[in-house]
Design a protein around this nucleic acid. Structure first.
Length: 495
RNA sequence: GCCAAGGUGGCAGAGUUCGGCCUAACGCAGCGGCCUGCAGAGCCGCCCAUCGCCGGUUCAAAUCCGGCCCUUGGCUCCA
């Protein structure tokens, strides 16, 4: 069973074959640290994370690089705002550290390196020089532009035709560019306050005319263009040709198209072999975005729903489809996650119970374990179909519940296998928190107190005093302790 | 206008690569039953889909071809 992926470059589903047998070079188009990350960004991270985890699970050595764009007009536009800082560096640092917190909160596997633009200006300048030397770029008033007409394959990723782009060109009369689609590799001087005026809060003080960082270059002081950074950092930390480049669908044109043009023009090699584009998160008909203001930040979402519900939410839609965010969708994700968690806990508990110490072989249950692994693997190999893989896990939950529900005695071996499947597929691959609940074996004071209350409640029930017993259950629920009565007595879990 | 991705039940969302096991998955919501002092959880069952519209190919189409309508994204900073 081999992995196949939908490659935007060809528009087709293709068998995945990395350049080197057991190594995958993965680049994820990171974000511009000019605002708090929202759930749309997190979806890209989560999907890329599951890809990373699945590739690792399948035995590949994944070399994952994900950039932070910390040089950008929008960052400059926020200088002086609240307590963000008085320089581009300070504002970028503020949001970068927040993003790192968000990523850790989301339980993302670490990338090998998180390169920043500000630390790669020499590499960027080298790349731009190469392009100028090779005739793919030209200098104009201290700025350098990529000449799209010099790159034969321009438009191959997005199927854009140069003459169509041209027809849409705004007023190009005063432009420094030779062609409307030419894009900046290097921008002369500092940021022009006029260019960021619309991004800047009205009540903030004026910025003087030399704002933002600049660096010395063969063309004078200036700043790197947006698109070059990914090319430079990808080639610096990975290789001229990488295996997988992941990004949001909104970046296909012009960003990724330009990355291909400048990289391949510079090296003569293919830049990325598989382009995977993640669909956008929609809220009420629009994409979630910073500029529309219709977003929920990652930090707030983690606070409100918890990492497992958020990750379950992302594992409910294939990466390349759009996904809808809303209260109903989150509630569904919560139900899905809790269903998995309860089944997992039921399996763990059943393993420990005396009913599991008999020789029992539940053939149907064992069969479902095999099916779970087969279905999960098949789904993930079909273009990382997390929704189908999740369905397999949920069916395992049903099988576990049925076995525990119906059997007088348990099939210990099969239950162990089920526990392992949850931990391996749900835990290692989906990044969900299986195996963390009460795993250290210590009993907390809170747990002892709950046991105490449950003893009191049991006595009340014994005495037929159900009203009082129900009150105690409600009171515990109000504190976040979910009580479940069963034949074997009550059990509880913290929400 | 041009490019791209989509339009599947009340909601959400797989399946479209390679047409038949799709009498359309998984789940949420809803409705019955079992279990329970009750509730929840769980189990069993049910409900809801002529797969955007029209035409074509085929023994056979959600899946292929043609046309049209609509939605979203991009063409300016954007995951």
């Amino acid at each position: 069973m081999t992995l196949s992926v939908t490659n935007t470059l060809t528009g087709e589903r293709e068998e995945f074959e990395p350049r080197n047998d057991d190594e995958v070079l993965l680049y994820v188009c990171g974000l511009t640290v000019s605002d708090d990350a929202h759930l749309g960004h997190a979806r890209l991270w989560a999907q890329a994370d599951v890809m990373h985890r699945w590739l690792s699970h399948e035995g590949y050595d994944v070399r994952h690089v994900e950039n932070f764009t910390d040089v950008n007009e929008k960052i400059v536009a926020r200088i002086g705002e609240d307590d963000l800082g008085e320089s581009e560096e300070a504002v970028a640092e503020h949001f970068t550290s927040q993003v790192i917190r968000d990523m850790r909160g989301l339980n993302l596997k670490r990338a090998e390196v998180y390169p920043r633009v500000s630390e790669h200006v020499p590499e960027i300048i080298d790349l731009v020089e190469t392009l100028v030397d090779r005739g793919y770029a030209y200098e104009s008033n201290g700025s350098v532009y990529f000449d799209v007409t010099a790159f034969e394959d321009y438009g191959k990723l997005s199927n854009q035709r140069l003459d169509e782009i041209e027809s849409q060109g705004v007023d190009e009369e005063r432009s420094e560019k030779h062609h409307p689609a030419d894009f900046a590799l290097w921008k002369a001087g500092a940021v022009d306050p006029d260019d960021i005026a619309e991004h800047r809060h009205a009540d903030l003080p004026e910025i003087d005319d030399a704002c933002g960082q600049t660096w010395a270059s063969p063309w004078g002081e200036g700043r790197p263009g947006w698109h070059v950074e990914c090319s430079a950092m990808s080639m610096t930390h990975l290789d001229d040709t990488i295996d997988i480049h992941v990004g949001g669908r909104d970046l296909v044109f012009p960003h990724h198209e330009n990355e291909i043009a400048q990289s391949e023009a510079a090296t003569g090699q293919q830049f990325a072999r598989y382009w995977l584009h993640v669909g956008l998160l929609q809220t009420a008909g629009d994409k979630m975005s910073s500029s529309l203001g219709n977003f929920l930040t990652v930090a707030d979402a983690l606070e409100e729903y918890g990492v497992d519900v958020v990750r379950t939410f992302y594992c409910s839609t294939a990466y390349r489809s759009e996904q809808t965010f809303g209260e109903d969708e989150m509630r569904e994700a919560e139900e899905r996650w809790e269903r998995l968690e309860r089944a997992y806990e039921a399996a763990v508990e059943a393993c420990d119970s005396t009913d599991a110490y008999a020789k029992v072989e539940d053939e149907a249950f064992r069969e479902s374990l095999t099916e779970t692994r087969e279905a999960f693997t098949a789904a993930m190999n079909e273009d990382f179909n997390v929704r189908e893989a999740m369905a397999a896990l949920l069916e395992l939950a049903t099988a576990v519940n049925r076995h525990v529900d119906e059997g007088e005695q348990y099939d210990f071996w099969a239950l162990r296998e089920a526990v392992e499947a949850f931990e391996e597929l749900g835990g290692d691959v989906f990044g969900l928190s299986f195996g963390h609940a009460g795993s250290d074996g210590t009993v907390t004071l809170a747990e002892e107190l709950v046991e105490l209350v449950l003893d009191i409640r049991a006595a009340e029930r014994e005495a037929g005093n159900y009203e009082r017993a129900d009150e105690l259950r409600d009171d515990l629920a109000a504190l976040g302790v979910e009580v479940q009565d069963s034949d074997d007595g009550p059990s509880f879990r913290f929400e």
